[in-house]
Each structure stands twice: as C-alpha cells, then as structure tokens.
Design a protein around this nucleic acid. Structure first.
Lengths: 154, 154
DNA sequence: CTGCTTGCAAAGTGTTTGCAGGCCC
DNA sequence: GGGCCTGCAAACACTTTGCAAGCAG
C-alpha cells in the first residue's frame, strides 16, 4: 500500500532532478496514511523507516517536496504547520476530494471543507482584485458545534 | 482624535472590572490610527505614550483587551499575529466596514476583503456542520495580482 | 568524484511564564 | 492596603541557518 504510491512520488522527485534519499522517502511514506502531521510528528514517525533522521532534515525535505508540488502545508493558528500529500503525489488517487481546513479555536479540532464551498469566494476575489486564493494554505477559524455552548477565547 | 475613542474603550475596560493602566491605554491609543500592527510594533510605538512598556506587558494587555472584546487579532501565515480594534471599542464608529484579510504568500501584502463575500461560506458551514466561522481570525492565503507572474513558493 | 543532502549545534522568531515589586482602586 | 499589573529574565515552541562530513548520481 505504501510502496506503490511512494515509488510514484519518488519518480516525480527524480524527474525534477532531485536526489532520492532515505529521509525523503521516509517523509513521503509517513504522510501516506496520515494526512495532518506536523514536522515534529513526521520526524518522530520517520524514525522507523530511517533511523536518525533529524528534525532539520525533515523540514528541508518538506520544503523540497513542497516546491515540487508533491506535498502541501496548511498553517494552523498558533501551532505547528501541518503537511499532507497532494493528489499529484498519489498514483492510485484513492484520495478523498481536495479540501480546505477549518479549525475550532476552542478545542483545536480540524474539520475538512470541500473546496466547492470556497469556489465562489475564490472567483469573487479573482474578479475583484485579481487575487488568486489558495484555499488549502491556511485553516479557517471558528467554533465547532460541540464547543458553541462554552465561552470564547483562543 | 485619539482621546475620545480611547476614553470610551477605557470605560468599557473599567466596566469589566479591569484596571486602567498606562500600558493598556497606550496599546489602545497606538491601535487607533493603525489597524494592522504586530505585538512588537505596538510595543515599539507604545514607548511614546508609556515609556518602558515591556513587550511582555503588551502581550498581556492584548490578551486582556481581547477577552473583553475591545480588540481582535488575525493570524498571518508564518509571521507575527496582527491586532486591531473592534468596532465596539470605537465610540465614533468612523470605522471602515468590517473585513477579513487575504495575504499574498509571495510578497506578504495584506488585502482587505469585505465580510459580505464570505457570508455565503459562513452560512454553508453553519448549516452543514454547525461550525460558526470567524472570518477575521485568520488570513486567507493566495497570490496577489502583482505577484502572479513570478513562480510560487512560500 | 562532484556537489547535493544530511546531522549537529546554534541562533532566530514569536510568545508565554515565574516571580518580586509597584500601582490602581 | 489588597491584589491586580508590570518588568525582568528565562523558558518555550517552531523553524531556519552555518558548517563539515556523507552519500546519490
């Protein structure tokens, strides 16, 4: 399950003139089953596939893979950025539909929002100020259903 | 220009059982003319009104004023949170319409987006998953018109 | 072999916390 | 005066950078 799509991703890596290393392979493999991991979580789990991978290396691998477009990241308010594979990186494409993230400022939970819901907004922005919105790049904030009884803060 | 609305804000502060101090007054005054300041920028400018105000104190003042609802903040990707007064805090209410922020991942520029554009999305989220969106709380990311010729990164 | 990648250490942001003293009410 | 606020120092979480050694191609 991992190997097939991982190899596809590595092939893309190579085709961009980048070297295939244990660290980069580990990062991709770790992201396969888990979509919302922080750099530290990735580093921790990568230990299994590539003992000794340093957090620094994970950050650098994430940057490289991100430039190529194999992975993307989402900024979440007040805590670590989360990373995920893009559809491109997954040969099997058994991926769920692309989605944006909304985060509850109370409990921190992340929810997925279908891109479709954000399309009208993106269109408006493009038309009005020429701004090309990337709906995946930052989490939208608010309060989830479960937390709406409690008071608000951050 | 500052004094009138500042006093109104301070009255609200007092009415919440909080003490009115030089540091808190300075934070409010500094935010009056400038809407998008980071904690550090606020601390730097507050020096004028209240010499010696420490960054730490600014953070604590911002937290307190935020809990009361006099100010709000917006998380921007990869850099410092920006703070602004809320409509409540401004007696004169000569405020521009409330707006959300979109940020260019290339040049870092911030743009305002009328809340109106985000209303349909907020409604959808509320209906579908009971999530109450706070459109002001995090900046949306994308690429501005001027930067769209260049390549992308972050 | 050439030089892209890595590991380590250290620095860099942005923000928070512990504690003693100071000021608002 | 009592206790909330402040200043200072230090710690904190996350991320980046410099440099010598290592491995991919």
């Amino acid at each position: 399950m991992t190997t097939a799509s991982t190899d596809a991703a590595l092939a893309i890596l190579r085709s961009h003139g980048e070297r295939v290393t244990a660290a980069r392979r580990a990062v991709i493999e770790v992201l396969q089953p888990h979509d919302h991991l922080t750099a530290d979580e990735i580093a921790a789990r990568a230990e299994a596939a590539a003992p000794g991978v340093h957090r620094t290396t994970v950050y650098r691998a994430l940057a490289t893979l991100g430039e190529i477009g194999l992975i993307a990241h989402t900024h979440v308010a007040g805590s670590a950025t989360i990373y995920h594979l893009t559809a491109d990186s997954d040969a099997d494409d058994h991926h769920e539909l692309d989605h944006a993230h909304v985060q509850c400022t109370e409990c921190g939970s992340l929810f997925n929002v279908e891109d479709r819901l954000l399309a009208p907004l993106a269109d408006d922005l493009e038309r009005q100020i020429g701004f090309r919105l990337d709906v995946h790049h930052a989490a939208l904030l608010g309060v989830c259903a479960r937390c709406q009884e409690s008071v608000a803060s951050d």
